[in-house]
Structure formats: structure tokens, C-alpha cells
Design a protein around this nucleic acid. Sequence first.
RNA 1: GGGGACGUAGCUCAAUUGGUUAGAGUACCGGCCUGUCACGCCGGUGGUUGCGGGUUCGAGUCCCGUCGUCCUCGCCA
Length: 591
Amino acid sequence: MSWQRTHTCGELRRSHVGAKVTLNGWVNARRDHGGIYFLDLRDRYGLTQVVLDERLAAGVRFGPEYVLSVRGVVRAREGAQVNSERATGEIELVAESLEVLSSSPVPPIDISGATETALETRLKYRYMDLRRPQMQRNLEHRSRFINAMRRAFERQNFIEVETPILTKATPEGARDYLVPSRVHPGEFYALPQSPQIFKQILMVAGLDRYFQVARCFRDEDLRADRQPEFTQLDMEMSFVEEEDVFAAWERVMKETFADALGVELTTPFPRMRWEEAMERFGVDKPDLRFGLELRSVDAWARASEFTVFRGAVEAGGRVMGLAVPAQHALSRKDITELETVAKGIGAKGLAWWKAGAAGGSGPLAKFCASAEAAGALMAALGAAEGDTCLFIADKQSLTRKVLGELRNQLGRRLGLIPKEQRWAFTWVTHFPLFEWDEDAQRYFSAHHPFTAPEDWSLGGAMDGREPDLGALSSRAYDLVLNGWELGSGSVRIHRADVQQKVFSMLGIGPEEQQRKFGFFVEALAYGAPPHAGFALGLDRTSALTLGLDNIRDVIAFPKTASASDLMCGAPSLVDASQLAEVHVASTAPRP
RNA sequence: GGGGACGUAGCUCAAUUGGUUAGAGUACCGGCCUGUCACGCCGGUGGUUGCGGGUUCGAGUCCCGUCGUCCUCGCCA
């Protein structure tokens, strides 16, 4: 008689009563009552209670996580026997025969119970961790989401094209993962940080609309929202500008959320220039689910007697603040904690003021003694009587950064984020083209070197003038959701001469350009259409739509903070012969 | 590379100021129990306190080093 299942463990209902069925699954729990024996059998689809009589239970040995095949008859449960907590709670399977298909030692992970196992153990025994219903739900959700997104792109006539995993190292950007070549001694492939160049070349090739579920690799340190390999929904389109890309994605997101989550998104998403995001929220990925916006106090500071404030403004910096409504009554202890946070980011201090028309209280009170000064400060902050106002005075970038972080922390700590407003998307546009790097003493691309400048003349550089590179604006954009950067993209440079000029501005000389990007610039020269694209982080999006704050829980086999795979033990030493074959000698001390 | 937290039974945790034979819950094993569903009751097995060194009459506890995990800053075109 076959052990193969006729139904799953989540399938049987009252309508199946009387049927002879076979279930396969893992032993989730056992309840031995002497004369009668209960067994919960689990698979991906659910739990079903199996009833064994005394004789049958005594005849076979099994424990948690054994794999069983149970054959028997479906019986209705009546009255108090019904388990209304379970989908299969109105029936049970009365076993007639039972076969052990596979055994298990005592499991290191409690799959059926309530205790949360240490992450280290979960990662080492990932195959058991993934048996947990929560993890299976996460992976199912991710699969549904990605498939819905694929269908949405196909409806818009995009085609999915695979690009190489073994490709060429790039000088800009993150650290590359390198793969030595056996055939070409001393030469290396790199794993792609993104399919950027290939997808642009697909546009030159006339593919017009491309997308790909693309694995990307960046050899940088990990975070809760960052793994060394991650997955993007990557896309590119020809003959378009920003709004065309936004519209394509808004349609995809609307359809995907409806399809996979049953959520109706409101489109179009708001657009916000980078400068506005930085000024109002202090960050380039603002969480728009709550207010508490930053306000400029520059004018007030310039006129004030407070030398710290006035000095900051006169030195070309900024004085900014935010007003915490009186109802949230920050204590001195709260403010001290916030000051510690501020100093940790680099602020010299945190000034505060309890707003009041009569001067208020706190360190700033003596500079607000006049009703005029107090009123002006309250007006600048949009503050009401009794609000706790927090101030940072420093150079602009630090002032924004510190207050942006304080705003985010206050949003969480004070419970300012309304539960019902779950999906606060926004496009952030017009990022700077270049950012100055103090250590390297040169400019780097804020996005990547293929990003189109807002001004095709590059501030006159195309005509031989020398613009202020830090002031150039780009056509890069990010999609932000609830304070997370979900993805980014840009209108691309489709002109070979502009691309070469940008490389030069980044300090990449003609010889290096030719060696590293020659093929790409040459491709642009052969009839490149104007094009633009975007890539969405699927790990982050999956996590966020599940309400998770760590992307590990939507990745089947994630790596630890030190980029190890605890299950298979990667990375690992390899045989000397293997190294020799690829012409590599290790300089690491061998244990 | 820096900062912080953590590491004790299969799992989750406790252990006073450095002091008896390192405990509890759960899991596991044995016994009892015919309606449980995280069954219950009784009993039992189970420990290199991550690893190495040091201080001490005595170390899970203090010190040094090291390994690992998490969070985070730098980093992440």
C-alpha cells in the first residue's frame, strides 16, 4: 500500500468525514492519554489531529519532527471536541496504519512551541527553522509578491532578461566580490553590484522595456536591512523621463499590492525634491507617517544674543529645531537621552526650550525674555505654549542629520506613527550629482556615474567652463516607504561625450575610462536612446510589507553580520590544489 | 576597523558581595491516565558555564586574550 498522501494536513473538513485518506507530515505534538493517543501532524498547509488507539500507538516509536505517513478514516469531532482555533478543528483522522518515513534526534529548535530560539541556532539548523509556520508564511508572501510584480511588468510589455553573474570589476561604488579566472591567469571576474551597465546596453540594443529579478553582490559590512547578496526588481525603459518611470512603477506597485496583499494603494505617490526632504525631515528617506518637521531658526538666531546660535549662522551654518507638542511632555531625563544621541552623531550639544510667550523655561529662556523674542521663536518653530523645542546649531549637513535622527527616534518613542496609515510612499527626486569625500579629497557620484545631470551642459563643463561640482543636481530618484529606502534609479546619460565628461569629473582619466568603461562608452556612441530606470529592493520590500524589521526573515538562507553561512560553513578554506588551479596564493595565515 | 549587548542542560532562562553538590521551565526517557489539542500527574536522564590563560583558599561571577551571535558608526556607485 502506498504511503503517498491523498490530502495535505490543512485540507480536511467536515465534508471529508468518512473518507479513507493518507496524510504525510511532521510530528508537531503528541498527547498520550493511555487508552487513547493524539498526534498533531504538520505540513506547510496546516495541522491535523490524528487519533491512535492504544495498540497502534504502542506498536511504533516516534518523536517530534519524525516524518510519518498515516492512513485512516476522517471522523467528525462534536461538541467540546471541536477545536475552533484550527482550520481542521472539526475533524480528526482515526489512524488505521502508520509508517515512519524518517526519524529525527531531539530538535534544536522548538517548532511547535512558543519559545523563540536564538538566531545562531536558527541559522545553523535553517532547514528546521524554515519548518516554522511563520517562516513558511514569510517565504510564501515573498513568492506571491514577486510573482505579482512579474505579472504587472509583463502587462506593461516589459521583458525579463538575465544578465551575467560573472562580470567585470568596476572602480566606483561598493567593494566587489572577485572570482579568479582559471583560463586567464591573474585575471578576475567580479560579481555584479547591480546589472546597471548590462541593462543600459539592453536599451542601446533596442529592448525598450527590460526587467529582471536580479541578484546583486556588494562586499560591505552588513546591517539589519543589508545582506552581502540581495535581490532587486531591476528595470529600465527607453524614450522616457522621470514621470514615465514613476507612472510605470506606481502602476506596478498598485497592482502588486492589490494582487499579493489585497491592499489598495493611492497613486500617484507624492514627489519631493531631495533638498525639501533634507530641509523638512533632515534625511533623504523621510518617514511621512508623522509630522514633527524640522524648522529653520536661522533668522531668529541671527538676531539673538545667544552666541552659540548666532555664531553658527554667521559661520555659514544653520540653526534648526523641532517642536514636540506639550501633550508628550518630555522630561529632563528624556532630553538628556536625546542629547546623548545627538552628541553620538557629532553634535556639540542639544539646546532646548519649553515654549512660552512669557519667556518659557530651559536654557533658552533667558534669550526669550521679551514677548517679541519668544513670539518670534514660537512662530519660527510653529510651536504652541508648553511645547518642548529642541535645537541644533552647526554646519547645515550635521544640523539636518542630527535633527533628522532625533525626529525619527521621537516618532517611535512618542508613538506618533498612526497604526492605520501603513503605506506612506514618496518619490525623492533631484539628488545631488556629486558628493565631496573628505578622506579621498575628491568627488564621488551620489548615485552612480551613469546618472544624467539635471543640466546636460554639466554647469557649462561641456563648453569648457569649470562648474562647482558640489552644486550640480542630478536626475536620480529614490522610492521611500515609511522611512525605508526601497529602491533608487535615475534618468541615464545616453550621450557618450557627457558620459566621458562625468568620468573625468570623477577623476577617471581617459586611459582608465578606456580600460574599464571603453566598451560601454562605445556602446553609447552607437545610437543610444534616451533611457531611465529603477531598481526595487525585494528583500526590504518583502520584510516591510510583512511588518518585519530584519530582512533575514524573508531570505531562506541569509548570512550573519560577519557574512558567514552558519549552516554550510561558508566561506571556508579550499585545497591548495584548487587555489593553484586558479592561480591564486593566499596571504592569510593558515591555522 | 570602532562602539555597545550577549554566550550557563537539546531549547528558553536563573544563580545574592567571588563561597555547599550550578537550578527552574520546557523537551527527552520511564510510569499512570479514553477526549486532549502547549493535555495532566509522578519519577528520571541530561552541564568542558563558548574557548584559552590569569588572580584567588575558592571563579558561571573578577582580569586579560580569543572565537561566535546581534545591534550600531564608518562603509554600502
